[in-house]
């Protein structure tokens, strides 16, 4: 199955086409012998934290063209839901949701930190930039399962890495698809494409009105 992978939670604007194969039975679990296989067919990535809204759809069309397919050949969309500090995070989510809606295919959310971790084998600590002198982070065990996070906080609150340290990396299309592979292959109902904001909006209720007369 051809999957469209999107992520806009890091400074990178990421779109890729990934071929996903593996057992499709609904009862597949992570411990099954036959692991899903995700291979990159095409990818377009630009590192520019201010260009998510501008470049994502052009990147999707370019990746589709590079893959020699059309959007109608895409069987599912997988989108990184952050956490990410950029207003552009929403560009990825709404693009994924609207593409899936008009193509009539499911759109699966994945935590962007899971997508970064879903690469090499082994335990990992994933850290990304949260701006405001803070970072997002999550920890993963040797089997790739998330054991802590995603959290947001100052760098000195982040634990010492056990295994691989992925520090300010961006997810690859293959990592994005791997993080959702079992759900996609099993044809499970996707969860909502809700961003992992981790922070509340900055807003203050107005104080008592100032008098204009003394």
């Amino acid at each position: 199955m051809l999957i469209l992978a999107l992520d806009t939670a890091t400074p990178a604007v990421t779109a890729g086409i990934v071929r996903l194969s593996g057992p499709a039975a609904a009862d597949v679990t992570a411990s099954d012998v036959t692991e899903p296989v995700a291979e990159q067919v095409a990818a377009r990535v630009t590192v520019d934290p201010r260009a998510h809204g501008e470049l994502l759809t052009p990147h999707v069309l370019d990746a589709v063209a590079d893959a020699g397919i059309t959007l109608a050949d895409v069987g599912a969309v997988v989108v990184g839901t952050g956490p990410g500090p950029y207003t552009g995070l929403r560009a990825g989510l709404v693009t994924g949701a609207a593409l899936a809606h008009s193509l009539g295919v499911p759109a699966y959310p994945v935590c962007t930190l899971d997508a970064i971790a879903a690469g090499p084998e082994g335990a990992a600590l994933v850290v990304t930039d949260a701006r405001r002198r803070e970072v997002y982070w999550a920890t993963y065990d040797a089997a790739g399962a998330r054991t802590g996070g995603p959290h947001v906080g100052p760098r000195d609150e982040v634990p010492e890495p056990v295994g691989r340290l992925a520090d300010h990396e961006q997810p690859t299309p293959v990592g994005i698809v791997r993080a959702a592979a079992l759900d996609v292959l099993a044809g499970r109902e996707p969860g909502p494409l809700t961003p992992l904001y981790l922070r509340r909006p900055h807003a203050a209720e107005p104080a008592t009105r100032k008098r204009v007369t003394a």
Binding site: T57, V60, L61, A91, V94, T95, A97, L99, H101
Partner: peptide, 14 residues
């Protein structure tokens, strides 16, 4: 940004 991103996706897909 939300509306513009959605519109691009709809226009591209359709």
């Amino acid at each position: 940004l939300v509306g513009v991103s959605a519109a691009k996706a709809y226009a591209a897909a359709l």
